[in-house]
Design a protein around this nucleic acid. Structure first.
Lengths: 176, 176, 176, 176
DNA sequence: AATGAATGAGCGTTCATTCAT
DNA sequence: TATGAATGAACGCTCATTCAT
């Protein structure tokens, strides 16, 4: 009974929990990038190579895992702050993921999501100061710009969509 | 709740065709407004009080009925041209419908959709001229602004989202 | 009211009945040849360019129109009798139609179908005599051979299926 | 009609997988026998007392389950080889199933189906040798005979259809 | 705690059949 | 009598969610 076994995947005990969680988050990010937020929730478990119930144990629904991906992205931003332009470009580069995460954040009512919103505000507040945005520029203004670039670029078919969108909103923010 | 009844819906004959078509378009507009473009196609038939197959006779898919709704909106604009600001406000007022129509327009490759795109371009070209937008402003610029306002407002939870988005993109377009 | 009109198709009165009937039979034969007996019944009306209800007026169901096609084929055979081999070859050439008609004939319980069966028997009886088939060969034997060739050829993917099938059953019938 | 109940069907867990698979194959065989290969795919799940999605998990389409039924039949033949006559009789006894399996085999392009075709060829090659069929008799000849008997018997209404068909093709094969 | 099979509801689509005109 | 639109009942397929192991 304790031979090499041919079991499809062993129950490796609690130790595997963290690994699984990370695999799920990575799979979700990939799938959001490829297919947008409308991927089947169960596809995430498949892609991660993890059982369905484990997915549900870690994340009760798609929004929850979206929030978790968001958290990772935020951590990167906190570690290495960027200016407005670079921020918008990175949003557009990952337009489908960005749009997915915004959907998740807006949809979620969890305290974790609240926390993320606060941390994002802090990042943006900092960015406004460091990047010489006109006085009066609010966090909400920048968030709106981000959302507009993300959703438009995710939906637009042409390759120059991102560039054009960024140009417009950046001018709109700076030309106060 | 007395006698309106839920009779199995009588076949009113071909005379009902035009009525049904209009009922379907109206139902689609309502549902797009309530739930976005992702409403089940069959929900449109249900809401219109029309059989599934009649929906399919009139419109082969969701994109087709999206295009039909678009056409009605476009006709209004052609009849009564408006300036950029009013245009964006009306887009935002019907944000979910607007986003739905943009999705339909972008998704479709039908000649009918092409025709609508051309008509929309004409409207915007005219608007650029009449509304003193900076020389060099392109139709694509305005379309991007429209798309950004529509998608952002459709997704955003707060009531002032539209106003803020319009302010940003309008400034962005005028500040050339 | 009696202008040139643009009505999709005028009600041309009883005179059109015969024409419609023939158009339906021709359409059915074509569709059986292309797609087998499983074509949607309504496709026949479409192909014939005739209203659905007219199809139903002339033929209550698919079996009935199959029988009608059969009748035409039988008339040709009565006008110009052929030998066993040529008969089997023509069955195989039109394998899908042949299989369709056999299905219709077997399924139908109408007196017309009975009549056709009788006429077919007469043709085969005549053929047995003229074609020197072994004494003792029954009409049922020949009918079975026809059915086998038709169904097998209709189902078989390879081009030599018909030839092989004909060789086997013809030998089987003649080698008594 | 007292207590057998129609409980909403409990989830008996993964242990039921093998049972379910077998129940599906059995149900498919029954339904093919009763109604031919054209039974609705979903009817198989209903008959087996299994959810739709479980059917799809085990067999992606009707052809796949046809192949599985075929496999069982083939295994019996491999275990206990029979002569041509007995083979044709058993085909005819299960005419509708046989015709269904032939349709599945012909329709499928899967490697599994190829494998079955090869095994069937081996069985027939062996049979040709053991049963003194004339030299020159090919596997394709015998397969054609099988197909003809199966399809004809499945379609024919009369009880003596099988016997007659077998007599003809057997004579056709032996009288070389 | 992890697995992955089972469930059933729902959506998209097609078809046979009816019915007002 | 011919027309063709309307109807609703299936069928194929997928997905979110649960549960025995």
């Amino acid at each position: 009974m304790s031979s090499t076994g041919e079991a499809p995947r062993k129950n490796r005990g609690p130790a595997a929990a963290a690994e699984n969680r990370q695999a799920l988050i990575d799979a979700a990010r990939d799938l959001f990038a490829e297919q947008g937020f409308s991927v089947p929730f169960s596809a995430i478990a498949r892609r991660a190579g993890v059982g369905q119930a484990s997915l549900y144990r870690h994340f009760p629904d798609k929004v929850a895992i979206g929030v978790a991906v968001f958290e990772e992205n935020l951590r990167l931003l906190e570690a290495r702050p960027v200016g407005l332009h670079d921020f918008l470009v990175s949003i557009a580069d990952q337009a489908k993921v960005s749009a997915s995460l915004l959907e998740a954040l807006v949809t979620s009512r969890s305290p974790l999501a609240e926390d993320l919103a606060v941390r994002l505000s802090a990042i943006i507040t900092d960015m406004i100061a460091r990047d010489d945005l006109p006085p009066g520029t609010t966090v909400d203004d920048v968030q709106a710009a981000v959302s507009m670039v993300a959703f438009h670029t995710a939906a637009a078919p042409t390759p120059d969509a991102a560039e054009r969108a960024i140009a417009i909103v950046e001018r709109g923010l700076r030309a106060l």
